[in-house]
Write a protein that binds this DNA or RNA. Structure first.
Length: 432
DNA sequence: TCTGGGGTCCTAGGACCC
DNA sequence: TCTGGGGTCCTAGGACCC
C-alpha cells in the first residue's frame, strides 16, 4: 500500500487584462486612463476595449464606424492591431510563467493554464504565488494580469472572472480559499453564459430549462446535460462540481488546418486582384506550414461578397487536392489559383477571400510518391528555407512570389498601427 | 464608406461494406 | 412474395473558444 498521496490538481489561469490595449499602453504610458480600443484587421471592429470603454457599454466586436459618434463624444482613441507586437509581448509573459511552473499550457495569445499543486508551497501558497506572478509580469513587461485558481480548468476560469471583476481579490482569486457559503453566493450571482464552454446558443436553451446562473448549472444533473447537449456540456457540468475532466495540454500539437484570409480594404471585382490576394495569403499559410514542419495534401480556396450589402451575394469555395503532399509555396499557389479559376464569377464585388491548407501531415514521416524525385524535393526545400530565412530577417513579404502583385490596392486598411517596438530595430521606442 | 481572423471538437447522417 | 441490419468511415455543419 502506498503512503504517498498525490496532491489534488490545482489549476491556475493567468490572463492579461484587456491584452491588446495593455500592450499599447505599456509603450505609451500617457494612454493610461484614456478610453481606447484596438481594432480588428481592416480597422473593422473593436476587439479590445479599455475599462473606460467597457464602462460606456461598448460590446466586444462593435464595428468602429458604428461607434464613431460615441468615440468623438468621449475622445476614444483607436489603434489598428499590431500583431507583431502582441505576439512578442505574449511570448515574454509565457517565458515568465514557465519559471513559476514548467507545467504550462499556452491557451491563447493572452491566457495560460498552469498546474501549480506541486509548486505553490514554494511561494507561500496559491494566492501568494499569484501575487508574485502579477508583480513580476508587471515589472518585466508592463502588463497587468489576473490569476484564478481552482481544482479544474473550468473553475480556474471562473475564479479568474471573479478576480477580474471584483477589486477585493486584488487580482488573484483561489476558489479553495473562499468559504463555502461565499462560493455559493458568487456562483449564484453570475450568469450561466459566463461559464467557459457555454456560448450564446446553449445559454439561451439553458435559460428555457430554468438554468440561469453558474450555481444552477453546477447543480444540474451531468447525465441530463449530456442528453440535451452532448458530452461537452456533461464535462463542463462535472468540472463545475470540481471533477477535473480537462487535462493540461502542455505539448503543443501541430495544427490540423492552417488558414489565411482577409477582408479587402475596398471591394474587389477583377480576377487579377483576387489572384494577387490569394497568392499573398497562401504564402503566409505556407510559411506557417513549414514552421510546424508539415506538408499539406489539399488547398481550400474561397471568395465571398459583402454579406452586409444588399447586392446580390456570391460565396464559393473549392478544395483542390494536391497530387502529393507539399510545403512548397509555388506549388500550393498554383493549386489555389487553379481553384479560383473554377469558382470565380465576374460581376460581383468581392469583400473577402482566403485559403486553408488541410490534410496536414508530418513532413518527415510523409510517404514518398513513386513519382517523387529526391533531387527535386531537396531543391524545393532549399528554396523555401532560403525564402523563410530572408523573410524572417528582413521582415515578412521581403521576398514573395510574383503572383502576389506589387501595388496590392486590395490590401486591408491599417491606418493607426503603433510601431513594432520590440521586433524591429527601426521602430524601437526612444527615451528622451 | 466603413461590420475580424483563426482555430478545435463533436455529432448526425450518408456512403459503403459484408 | 419476400427487399436486413450492423459496423465503419467520412464529411458537413453546429457549437464553442479567443
Amino acid at each position: 500500500m502506498s503512503t504517498v498521496s498525490t496532491p489534488a490538481p490545482q489549476f491556475a489561469l493567468v490572463d492579461v487584462n484587456n491584452f491588446y490595449v495593455s500592450c499599447e499602453r505599456a509603450f505609451k504610458p500617457r494612454l493610461e486612463g484614456i478610453p481606447m480600443v484596438v481594432l480588428s484587421n481592416n480597422d473593422g471592429c473593436a476587439v479590445a476595449r479599455s475599462n473606460e470603454v467597457k464602462a460606456l457599454g461598448v460590446k466586444m466586436g462593435t464595428p468602429w464606424f458604428k461607434m464613431k459618434d460615441l468615440a468623438r463624444e468621449h475622445r476614444i482613441q483607436a489603434f489598428s492591431s499590431n500583431y507583431t507586437l502582441y505576439g512578442d509581448m505574449s511570448n515574454r509573459v509565457v517565458q515568465i510563467l514557465r519559471d513559476f511552473s514548467p507545467d504550462t499550457e499556452v491557451y491563447s495569445i493572452d491566457e495560460s493554464f498552469l498546474r501549480i499543486e506541486t509548486v505553490a508551497h514554494l511561494y507561500g501558497g496559491a494566492i501568494a504565488m499569484g501575487q508574485q506572478m502579477r508583480e513580476r509580469i508587471k515589472q518585466w513587461t508592463g502588463l497587468p494580469v489576473c490569476v484564478g485558481v481552482g481544482p479544474t480548468k473550468t473553475l480556474a476560469k471562473f475564479a479568474n472572472h471573479l478576480a477580474k471583476k471584483n477589486p477585493e481579490f486584488e487580482g488573484v482569486c483561489d476558489l479553495h480559499a473562499i468559504p463555502r457559503p461565499d462560493r455559493v453566493r458568487w456562483m449564484s450571482g453570475i450568469e450561466v453564459g459566463e461559464v467557459w464552454g457555454v456560448g450564446g446558443r446553449i445559454a439561451r436553451r439553458l435559460e428555457v430549462m430554468g438554468i440561469h446562473t453558474v450555481l444552477e448549472l453546477r447543480n444540474a444533473s451531468p447525465k441530463e446535460m449530456r442528453r440535451h447537449f452532448g458530452v461537452v456540456m456533461e464535462r463542463t457540468c462535472n468540472e463545475l462540481r470540481g471533477i477535473s475532466c480537462l487535462a493540461l495540454d502542455d505539448i503543443v500539437q501541430p495544427k490540423q488546418q492552417i488558414m489565411s484570409s482577409r477582408s479587402f480594404g475596398r471591394p474587389v471585382e477583377t480576377i487579377e486582384e483576387l489572384r494577387e490576394s490569394l497568392a499573398s495569403y497562401l504564402s503566409r499559410a505556407a510559411a506557417k506550414l513549414r514552421t510546424q514542419q508539415s506538408v499539406s495534401a489539399a488547398v481550400y480556396v474561397f471568395i465571398q461578397t459583402n454579406r452586409f450589402n444588399k447586392d446580390e451575394q456570391y460565396n464559393a469555395g473549392l478544395t483542390v487536392p494536391m497530387p502529393e503532399p507539399t510545403d512548397n509555396t509555388l506549388t500550393l499557389t498554383a493549386a489555389a489559383l487553379a481553384g479560383l479559376e473554377v469558382i470565380y464569377r465576374s460581376g460581383y464585388r468581392y469583400k473577402k477571400a482566403g485559403v486553408m491548407l488541410t490534410l496536414l501531415s508530418d513532413k518527415q514521416a510523409r510517404q514518398m510518391s513513386i513519382f517523387d524525385h529526391a533531387a527535386v524535393t531537396q531543391r524545393s526545400t532549399q528554396l523555401m528555407t532560403a525564402l523563410d530565412m530572408i523573410n524572417r530577417d528582413y521582415g515578412h513579404g521581403t521576398v514573395r512570389s510574383g503572383a502576389s502583385g506589387f501595388t496590392q490596392r486590395w490590401a486591408m486598411r491599417n491606418q493607426n498601427r503603433s510601431p513594432r517596438y520590440t521586433t524591429r530595430w527601426d521602430e524601437l521606442p526612444i527615451v528622451y
